[in-house]
Each structure stands twice: as C-alpha cells, then as structure tokens.
C-alpha cells in the first residue's frame, strides 16, 4: 500500500491505479480501482456492475467535460501529471470542482512533487500521491507554503481584493 497525502494527513491508500492499456477481463471484481478514461468510455456499464469502489483517472490531454455527466459514478477522480511541468490538469481540476460540482476525492497522480502541492490544493485537489521515491511526510509542509493568496480559486473563492481589511 502506498502512503499518500489526503485531507492534510499522510494515510495508507487502498486504491489500485490501473494502466492506460488495462482491459476489462483483467479486472478483479472487488478491489477499489482507478480506471483509465478509455476503459470507462468503452465499458461504463460493466464497470458500474462491479462490487469494488470505482475511481477514474484522466491524463493531461483528456478533458473534464468528457466525464462531466458521469461524476456520480466515481468515488475518486485522479488527474495525471506526466511531468510536473505539464500544467493542463490544473485546469481540469478547477473545472471539475467549480463548474461540474464534483465534491468527492480529487487526487493528483504521476510526477507529483512537494513544490507543486500548494498550487494543486488551490485548484481543488484534496489528495496527493507523492512520487514513490519521495517522502509524503516531508511533502506535507508544502501545503502551507503560502499564508495568503491573491486569486479566486477552489480553496478560497474570494480574491484578496474582496477580502482586504
């Protein structure tokens, strides 16, 4: 089991993240699975019929709009950062939270490092699968890198200019 950061604490995780090329027949019935978008797009029905919990993950070139009508089916949505320098999924995260009203677990996966955590948090992620070679405990501190912010985002919808004393 991997140690991840969830809601501000390091916890053990029991979700299984599936590769992009996973096929339906390879799936166990009862595990908690995070399936790639493509599998969901092709086999939504079968995936819903499983006993285990269902999560989905989007790669950085996949669009939040494509799962917007299906959100009720997922106990977890993960957004992949193939490289921490690929910022597309910051936008998907905000769209899921702010436009499509997703309230469940939103997890950053992939090249997840502590120096981006604060931005992730602001965009609506509440869990972070910090890269396996890094210590999640160490990373925790970066969630508090800044004590004030200028813009409206998921964590603080009011921009500073509406809050200045």
């Amino acid at each position: 089991m991997q140690r991840i950061i969830k809601d501000g604490a390091v916890v053990l995780d029991n979700w299984h993240l599936l590769d992009k090329d996973t096929t339906l027949d390879a799936l166990p019935n009862s595990d908690n699975l995070i399936v790639p978008f493509k599998l969901w797009a092709e086999h939504a029905h079968a995936l819903k019929a499983r006993d285990g919990k269902l999560g989905i993950w989007l790669d950085s070139d996949e669009q939040a709009e494509d799962i917007a009508d299906d959100l009720a089916n997922f106990q977890l949505i993960a957004l992949n950062f193939p490289s921490f320098a690929d910022g597309r999924n910051y936008s998907n995260a905000r769209l899921l939270r702010e436009r499509f009203g997703y309230t469940g677990e939103l997890r950053a996966i992939g090249d997840v490092l502590r120096d981006q955590l604060f931005f992730y948090l602001r965009c609506g992620f509440n869990s972070f699968a910090v890269r396996a070679d890094r210590d999640a405990e160490d990373a925790l501190g970066s969630l508090k890198d800044f004590s004030e912010v200028y813009q409206s985002a998921v964590d603080q919808p009011q921009p500073l200019f509406r809050r200045r004393g």
């Binding site: 921490f84 320098a85 690929d86 910022g87 910051y90 936008s91 905000r94 981006q116 604060f118 931005f119 992730y120 948090l121 602001r122 965009c123 800044f146 912010v149 200028y150 813009q151 985002a153 921009p159 500073l160 200019f161």
Partner: peptide, 13 residues
C-alpha cells in the same frame, strides 16, 4: 500583476 502572481492554475503553461 496581483492576479498573475502565483496564479495556481497557470504556473505551468
């Protein structure tokens, strides 16, 4: 400037 400073969504354009 203030809007752009540490804008969380646009740090990795």
């Amino acid at each position: 400037r203030q809007w752009a400073t540490f804008h969380p969504e646009f740090a990795y354009l």
